[in-house]
Design a protein around this nucleic acid. Structure first.
Length: 562
RNA sequence: GCCCUCGUAGUUCAAUGGAUAGAACAGUUCCGUCCUAAGGAAUAGAUGUAAGUUCGAUUCUUGCCGAGGGCACCA
């Protein structure tokens, strides 16, 4: 609609350059506003009025703004479109584009952290938003299956012994996480007064680390295989609850050699030797970049090198890929720029096909983290605790156990995901545990609740045999705020996709829910005596459809009951 | 020291260079037999600072102040 009005304005006024057409902040100022310079404004107004589009009811001038009011007919038409078009709000801007999104990236043998939870929520939502623009999206997960962290966990497992076989997968994974913490704590130097001494555990852990690489110790191999399987299974359980299904799993051990070959093939051209290490001098290409080590003086490939191997592997596995997106925390921003520069020198054809999206840290309000005591708040425990608290709230509902479990998961996950996605990616967020479980106001459960309310209205209408009717003849003359918002959904989705920003959708949905709840509170929707009831029910249908679709784009499920 | 990100109500967050800077939580008031009150209505409260560009700046540029992250053998 925005494009249509823009084109009409350009044609009518015979201007070539783009015009500024926006939604006014205050709906009392119409549905669209043309911002123009003071000269000729009267003349423009006259021309526009003479050549008025059928969808436009009224045009008026306030200061230098020309405001357009859409007609009731347009709104009822948009409601009709929402009801008839299952693909409403989808677009084809990325049709035939192959995009890979890498996100989550937890490490086997380590806990699923809050950071992984954030990356997952953002990555999944971006994947879905791109899909709704017609892209063919594959989801990728990259995991560190080798390295010191694994050795620390195995050292801890040897010290404490394997967990009780009756433990659930999640409990076993937590146990492994504790063993990792034990190993990590013992690895550091011991302080004796002012003296610093290497801990005896360091030597043992380094020894284990070597054996993990060369696979010569049968006992360690066995623990490794068991631990790898347990943590990966535990991650899968979380992905199921979170609503993610990955198409590709990349492992550090698989891409390390590929990356090393790339680096060694380009020594002298792109990479240089320095103090025995192989480095890339980023600042020679761009003052904003810096030098990074790709292969250490002991001959081991670093993270940067593995990242090169990973990129190459992605393009190999997914030929003709148009875009490779990686979602990580902010702290990787500067490394990734250097890596991206090196990669674009090796493969110029990748230069415009890589995008790095970063997010901030999640801080927990109220001092909930107490790592020393071992009860660290992990992503896994955050999900578990939130769901448990929701379960408590719905325990008296008249549903069977399975339904209670499912709905508690849907609500708990939405509480967490919404608090991550409601604000722009990039900044730190504060997760207030207490607020999230109170479900008040600006929250995922509030959106879900609005959806459930709409559905129960629809159910009631069905029982009373009132059919929805979006045609203007049955519409009340009043134009509801909710009508003025529903038709804008496709614009919001488009913007989210082009900026890779889910929060536009989250903010839109909260305003939409508020508009619907206002409508719901002030209007009797299902009423046999009311001739406009079928229109109001159609409106409710349209709201329910858009809300469900919007929640889906955020990676949040819409429960049938709450 | 250099590079990146960011400073908006008491708090947590919004605002494609446009109108009176939007919400939510906390505060003060109302609305209970009703399509689920996990709700609705009302009320009060903010752009770190100094310049510049512009008809017009929270948004763009620069200085300063403040916060976080990154700057070679960890990932």
């Amino acid at each position: 609609m925005q494009e249509k009005i823009k084109n009409w304005i350009k044609e009518t006024l015979k201007v070539e350059e783009d015009v500024t057409l926006i939604h006014p902040k205050d709906m009392g100022n119409g549905d669209f506003t043309l911002v123009s310079l003071p000269e000729n404004i009267e003349e423009h107004l006259q021309k526009l009025n003479q050549n008025k589009l059928p969808e436009i009811d009224k045009i008026e001038k306030v200061d230098r703004f020309i405001n357009f009011y859409l007609s009731k007919k347009f709104f009822s038409g948009s409601i009709e479109e929402i009801l008839n078009n299952r693909n409403f709000a989808e677009n084809r801007t990325l049709q035939n584009k192959k995009i890979m999104v890498e996100y989550t990236d937890p490490n086997p043998f380590k806990p699923f952290h809050i950071g992984h939870l954030m990356t997952n929520a953002i990555g999944e939502s971006i994947a879905r938003i791109l899909e709704s623009s017609g892209a063919s999206v594959s989801r990728a997960n990259y995991q560190g299956d080798i390295g010191l962290h694994v050795a620390k966990a195995i050292w801890g497992l040897q010290k404490r012994g394997l967990p009780n076989p009756d433990f659930s997968t999640a409990e076993k994974a937590n146990y492994i996480g504790e063993c990792y913490s034990l190993g990590a704590g013992e690895y550091g130097p011991i302080h004796l007064g002012d003296e610093e001494k290497e801990s005896p555990a360091k030597k043992e852990i380094d020894e284990i680390n070597k054996k993990i690489y060369d696979k010569t110790d049968a006992k360690i191999n066995k623990i490794y295989d068991w631990g790898f399987k347990v943590t990966m299974e535990a991650f899968e359980d979380l992905y199921r609850i979170l609503g993610t299904k990955f198409d590709f799993y990349f492992l550090e051990s698989e891409v390390a050699q590929i990356g090393e070959n790339i680096v060694r093939d380009n020594i002298g051209k792109i990479f240089k030797e320095s103090d025995g290490a192989i480095i890339f001098k980023g600042e020679e290409y761009d003052p904003k970049l810096h030098t990074r080590v790709f292969i250490t003086s002991t001959g081991l490939p670093t993270y940067e090198t593995k990242e090169l191997g990973l990129a190459e592997e992605k393009f190999r596995m997914n030929p003709n890929m148009n875009l490779s997106i990686v979602v990580t925390a902010n702290e990787q921003l500067d490394y990734m720029r250097v890596v991206a520069k090196a990669l674009s020198l090796i493969h110029t054809e990748y230069t415009d096909k890589m995008k790095h999206i970063t997010h901030g840290m999640m801080r927990l309000a109220g001092g909930k983290m107490s790592s020393r005591k071992g009860n660290v708040v992990t992503g896994e425990s955050l999900i578990r605790d939130t769901i448990a608290l929701v379960s408590e709230k719905v325990k008296d509902r008249d549903w069977d156990e399975e339904k209670k479990k499912k709905i508690s998961e849907q609500i708990g996950v939405s509480a967490i995901k919404y608090s991550i996605l409601k604000q722009s990616t990039g900044g730190d967020i504060t997760y207030d545990f207490e607020k999230s479980i109170s479900f008040e106001g600006d929250s995922g459960p509030y959106l879900q609740y609005s959806y459930v309310r709409a559905n129960s209205v629809i159910e009631k209408a069905a029982k009373e045999n009132i059919l929805p009717d979006p045609h203007p003849e049955s519409a009340p003359t009043e134009i509801f705020e909710i009508e003025k918002m529903l038709y804008r959904f496709p614009e919001i989705v488009l913007r989210s996709a082009s900026e890779y920003e889910p929060h536009y959708i989250a903010n839109y949905l909260i305003e939409l829910a508020r508009a619907f709840n206002g409508f719901y509170g002030n209007t009797l929707i299902v009423d046999k005596k009311d001739k406009t009831s079928p229109y109001k029910i159609a409106l409710t249908f349209a709201f329910s459809f858009v809300m469900k679709k919007g929640l889906r784009l955020l990676g949040i499920e819409a429960p049938e009951k709450m």
